[in-house]
Design a protein around this nucleic acid. Structure first.
Length: 323
DNA sequence: AAAGGTCTCCGCCAGC
DNA sequence: ATGCTGGCGGAGACCT
């Protein structure tokens, strides 16, 4: 591992959004030596002459300048004041140099526009706050996914609106220190270690009380109530009296996921609850959550939670580290 | 651990 | 025309 790999630099500028800039400070910048691992070295970097004035109006004197990016293993760009304010040539140069040197480049919310202007998103999958997705598409050659909470494409990471930045930062911790440490940090932040569903569920919808939507809600409730019976996509379609083709489209439009993706997420969520609250054998947990077998549940946990059912139970059953 | 079988997704297109 | 629907089939994910 190259030197400085555990160094995280967050770059802010005039008008920095205070919540966004606080996210990397909180996740990477606090002393967490009590977790028993060598924690990150965190640098708050200003791209503009310091002190800068934040979006909230208070002034912030940052200890580092752009040259600090050179040694960082991870560079985070929190939400920028306004996507129309273009990053300076010096910032673009520092970012591209860091990327060339192998650093992970991370944006939170509208920070994605800075990455776009640096040419780092071209040809990649990316996301940003859903209100800005169209503008980001127009700005660069990225495949913008407005439904994701965060997207990793190689060593370029982007996340959706403000709070999703926490999800992404926890994802980075998970990559660096593993699921248990990431979960411990999540508990400290009083955050779920892994949020299901993407930002589609937070996007404003004009007709929330549409009868069709209510019927859809009933369908989802029915599915959740019958998870242990091994509900399939066909079952859902039959229940909803529509073809699987139409059901798939409705799901994508309403939930932001495919039916099976959603089903799997619900099974995982149920299994998590059973693991947290009972000591029943994993076979029984799998059956109750509607997985075909404990082996299937295990592989789904590995894929979606980056942990095993057993490890999950060990971490979250009764009395983990205090919040 | 690998392979064969099943399920799911999604673009396409025609029908209402 | 417009918009929703649903069958089809290949590709690929997923399960056993």
């Amino acid at each position: 591992m190259p030197t400085g790999a555990r160094t995280v630099a967050a770059v802010i500028g005039e008008g920095a959004l205070t919540f966004d800039l606080a996210v990397p400070c909180e996740v990477f910048g606090l002393d967490r030596s009590d977790l028993g691992v060598d924690w990150y070295r965190f640098l708050l970097v200003s791209a503009d002459p310091s002190p800068i004035t934040t979006s909230t109006g208070f002034r912030l004197d940052t200890p580092h300048r752009l040259d600090a990016l050179a040694g960082a293993g991870t560079v985070v760009v929190p939400g920028w004041c306004d996507p129309e304010v273009r990053p300076s040539a010096a910032l673009v140069a520092a970012l591209t140099a860091a990327h060339r040197a192998g650093a992970r480049i991370v944006s939170l919310c509208t920070g994605a526009f800075v990455l776009a202007d640096a040419g780092l998103l071209d040809g990649r999958r990316a996301t940003t706050h859903w209100m800005y997705a169209e503008r980001l598409r127009a700005r660069c050659a990225a495949r913008v996914d407005p439904a994701a909470l965060y997207v990793q494409d190689g060593n370029v990471f982007t996340s959706a609106g403000t709070a999703a930045g926490i999800d992404l930062c926890l994802h980075l911790v998970r990559l660096d220190y593993g699921a248990e440490i990431a979960n411990a940090v999540a508990r400290r932040l009083v955050m779920p270690p892994f949020r299901e569903g993407g930002q589609a569920q937070y996007i404003d919808r004009p007709l929330p009380l549409d009868p069709a939507d209510r019927a859809f809600g009933d369908l989802l409730r029915w599915a959740v109530d019958h998870l242990s019976e091994g509900v399939t996509v066909d079952d859902l379609a039959r229940r909803a009296a529509m073809s699987t083709r139409t059901l798939g489209r409705r799901f994508q439009g309403t939930v932001g996921q495919s039916p099976s993706e959603w089903l799997l997420g619900e099974r995982v969520r149920l299994a998590q609850r059973i693991l947290e609250t009972t000591g029943v054998p994993l076979e029984v947990v799998a059956a109750r959550a509607g997985f075909g077998s404990a082996a299937t549940m295990r592989s789904v946990f590995a894929r979606r939670l980056r942990t095993s059912p057993r490890a999950y139970r060990r971490t979250f059953r009764a009395g983990g580290p205090a919040g």
